[in-house]
Amino acid sequence: MDRGKYAKYVMLGPAVVVTLAASLYPMYFALVTSFRDWRLSRSLVPQDFVGFDNYVRAFQDERFLNSFIVTIKYIVISVSMSIVLGLLMALLLQRKNWLNTITKTLMILPFAVSPALRGFSWKFMLNPQYGAFDKIVDTVFPFMADINWLADPLWALIMLAITEVWGWSPLVALMFIGGLGTINPEITEAASLDGANEWQVFWRITLPLLSPIILLVTLLRIIFSLKIFDQIVTMTGGGPGDATQALNYFVYLNGFKFFDFGYASALGYLLLILMLIAAFFYVRSLLGGNES
């Protein structure tokens, strides 16, 4: 064996081991478990294979269907808010001046706040008695004074999304600013000279040119929204009722609260399928960007 070959395997070996450990092994294990009856309350070791029973059970389980709908609603709210807000921020911050530079620097801070902490911080600010956000809203919009944010099913979901939008929309904006920078100013200038107003330039030129990045960011946001978990624990606990019990949290409840490993694995696989669909499109637009 020559030296080059030897080095290649040494360098790759650990990576292969870790990758297999990080993806292939858990995927295989969860798949096998999802076809089994394995309730820790009854037995420490896995019981019989039960075919697709766990999957069938999921589609008959109203709580699963609820968590699926919650997840979809959550994705729609959270992704659309962060894209729209991100775009708005990008347009405002596009020009180079000292105020914008400071703002753009501070904009990465929310992302460095862990999701669990974002949940805590917003829970504190939303408290109807002493929360700062609640106080501000009450002052600016007196008609909203009676809202108890985390006790209302829809508001709780929106606020859960806000914690994520707070962390993400500044980064989305920074990505868009990068994209705006690549648009040749001659194109927009030419349009202005031809009599297009700013509004028309935005809708007809800027937005279409930005669409590849918007697509990429949307897919990235969908992937992360599917994973929503930490804030549910620290902010809503899945409530009120089961109004914020997103899929990832529902898998956790079945696996680590009810210790129903078989069922939890099947649920996890259903989540995994959703994730892989989103990931497929993400990777395609990530790698195929130049081809299309």
């Binding site: 993806s23 478990t33 990832n248 898998v251 696996g255 680590f256 696989y269 892989l276 989103a278 990931a279």
Partner: peptide
């Protein structure tokens, strides 16, 4: 690449 897209709850159980 796909390891990054695995839901943490799926990885956790095994």
């Amino acid at each position: 690449l796909s390891a990054q897209f695995l839901p943490a709850t799926v990885v956790l159980l095994p």
